[in-house]
Simulated scan of single mutants.
Amino acid sequence: MGNFLVALSQNIILVTVVTAWITAQILKFFTTYLKNKEINIERLIGAGGMPSSHTALVVSLASAIGFHDGVESSLFTVAVVLAGIVMYDAAGVRHAAGKQAKVINQLVRDLKVEHKIRDTRLKELLGHTPLEVLGGALLGFGIAYGFHLFYW
């Protein structure tokens, strides 16, 4: 087991991706604090917020593969397609689902006043704005580039 963990820690692409994800989650915690002036520990692991950690992860993956294997490699192509799907989902589908959850939550609050209705609050912060996705993409690329400069 020890050799396996050592081998994982020496996989520079994996280390790059994990670093990008952790950095994005930590930044998300601080940007939420600066915006709302309150500590929200859930931002360290939750979806939504600035920057998009999913985007940082997949862009750092695609970039690291591009730096390591070359942009003409098949693996780079797969990673770029994956990154595009994740970014589209983050800014499109999940963002729209979050907006719908907000409307449904308001309807439940309004109905609760007049009727006996069980309050099941839906999570509203699911997706990202295009700016949050862009922030994640820049962060992911920057971290991959930094690893490329210092470790390859």
Rank of each mutant, 00 (worst) to 15 (best):
A47P: 00
A56G: 12
R121E: 14
G84S: 12
A83N: 11
N105E: 03
L34P: 00
I143N: 09
N11F: 02
I45H: 11
I65A: 06
G92A: 04
L126V: 05
E124V: 06
N11W: 03
A24N: 11
E114P: 00
K99E: 14
T129D: 01
G84P: 07
V59H: 05
A137Q: 09
V15M: 14
T23I: 03
L75N: 15
H95N: 15
S53E: 03
V133M: 03
A79E: 11
V78S: 12
V18G: 06
H148R: 04
Y33S: 06
Q100V: 01
K99Q: 15
I85D: 02
V113T: 12
T16R: 02
S74M: 05
V133Q: 06
H68V: 04
V71W: 15
K102T: 14
K102S: 13
D69M: 09
L122D: 05
H148P: 07
A137S: 13
A144S: 09
L57E: 11
A83P: 12
G84H: 08
L125Y: 00
V113I: 13
E114N: 14
L138I: 10
E42A: 13
G48E: 03
L8K: 13
Q10R: 14
F30L: 07
I143M: 07
V58M: 10
L44D: 03
F147S: 07
L82F: 15
L82C: 10
V81C: 07
L61S: 06
K37S: 11
T16A: 03
G142D: 01
I85Y: 00
D110M: 12
V71R: 13
I39V: 15
T23L: 06
W21Q: 11
F141I: 03
I39R: 00
V58L: 12
K37N: 14
N40L: 01
A20S: 10
W21K: 00
T129Q: 04
F76P: 07
L107R: 09
F4R: 13
M87D: 03
Y145P: 00
L131I: 13
T77Q: 14
L139N: 08
V93K: 10
V15L: 11
I85H: 01
